[in-house]
């Protein structure tokens, strides 16, 4: 490492397995920025980092937890949320953060997402949405915009994408936000808030995938950032049904849901633990 003599270390190095850096993410990929924001938020939120664990499934974003020196679990494709659910229920003292991608959390893992949100498991779910499957080379995902080209939709995507914040809201998430990697301060603040909230929190982070998505849709990393800059409309508290993610019309960003509801554990303790007869 050619850090200059007497150069102070990077402020996030205390949370990173520096012997594993540089990481695997491509030049211009946005996962690293979302990852840094997550680490900054963890530091600034004041949560006990020894009691904090990061869980992921499979994919580019899912490699994130492996770069922290926190307890981290890189599990099977789509199954980060049920794995995290088991961890949280077995030890409610843990702060459990799921950091994974859109393909992992919303295609193969979509069922787990809606059920964890419905149950209001106390998790913080950060989804890096790069609009495609990056790790396998740019295939269509449940988030790929209609008509976009991917390796498995060479003529253009015939399917409409999910509106992830709406899905999270409809499923019962108590904190829902969407930002891009350009909006690092808002993003970091959002993750910080989500870490401090009890309940199922969901943050979607739009990020460029120059190698998979960008290459086939004439979008270089800086084009994506410019697009985020020009087309973003921040509307905090907007109803998730009204928010858009459209290359022509724009992208709605903000914190859309921030409510309090008893978590699964709260209700379990009340209904099952104290009065066993209630379980009969």
């Amino acid at each position: 490492m050619t850090t200059k003599k007497n150069q102070p270390t990077h402020p996030l190095d205390s949370l990173v397995r520096t012997d594993r850096i540089p990481h695997i993410w491509c030049p211009g990929c946005g996962v690293g920025t979302a990852f840094s924001s997550c680490l900054i938020a963890m530091k600034s939120s004041g949560i006990d980092l020894q009691k904090t664990t990061m869980v992921s499934g499979i994919g580019c974003s899912a490699r994130g937890p492996g770069y922290t020196n926190l307890d981290s679990y890189h599990t099977t494709h789509g199954r980060a949320i049920p794995y995290a659910t088991g961890m949280k229920l077995a030890n409610p003292q843990l702060n459990v953060v799921v950091f994974s991608g859109d393909g992992d959390l919303f295609a193969i893992g979509g069922n787990h997402f809606i059920h964890a949100a419905r149950r209001n498991i106390d998790l913080t779910v950060v989804c890096v949405n790069n609009l495609n499957y990056g790790m396998t080379g740019g295939q269509v995902a449940a988030t790929t915009p209609s008509l976009s080209k991917t390796t498995t939709t060479p003529q253009g995507n015939p399917e409409p994408p999910f509106n992830l914040p709406l899905l999270a809201f409809a499923s019962g998430a108590t904190y829902v936000a969407r930002w891009t990697i350009l909006h690092t301060r808002d993003l970091t603040k959002s993750i910080e808030e989500a870490l401090q909230r009890r309940g199922f929190s969901f943050i979607e982070v739009l990020a460029p995938c120059p190698t998979g998505y960008g290459r086939r849709n004439r979008e270089r990393p800086l084009d994506a950032l410019r697009f985020y800059q020009e087309k973003s409309i921040i509307k905090n508290d907007a109803h998730p049904a009204d928010i858009i993610l459209d290359y022509q019309k724009g992208i709605t960003l903000g914190t859309f849901v921030d409510v309090e509801k008893p978590t699964f554990t709260d209700i379990y303790e009340k209904t099952c633990r104290l009065d066993p007869a209630a379980c009969m």
């Binding site: 664990t53 869980v55 679990y73 599990t75 099977t76 789509g78 199954r79 949320i81 049920p82 794995y83 995290a84 659910t85 088991g86 961890m87 949280k88 229920l89 077995a90 030890n91 843990l94 069922n111 787990h112 059920h115």
Partner: peptide
């Protein structure tokens, strides 16, 4: 859980914790 895939994942998670 919502299916057996999730059940097994949750079991592994709980044991990890």
């Amino acid at each position: 859980m919502e299916d057996e895939i999730a059940a097994m994942a949750a079991v592994l998670g709980a044991s990890s914790a």
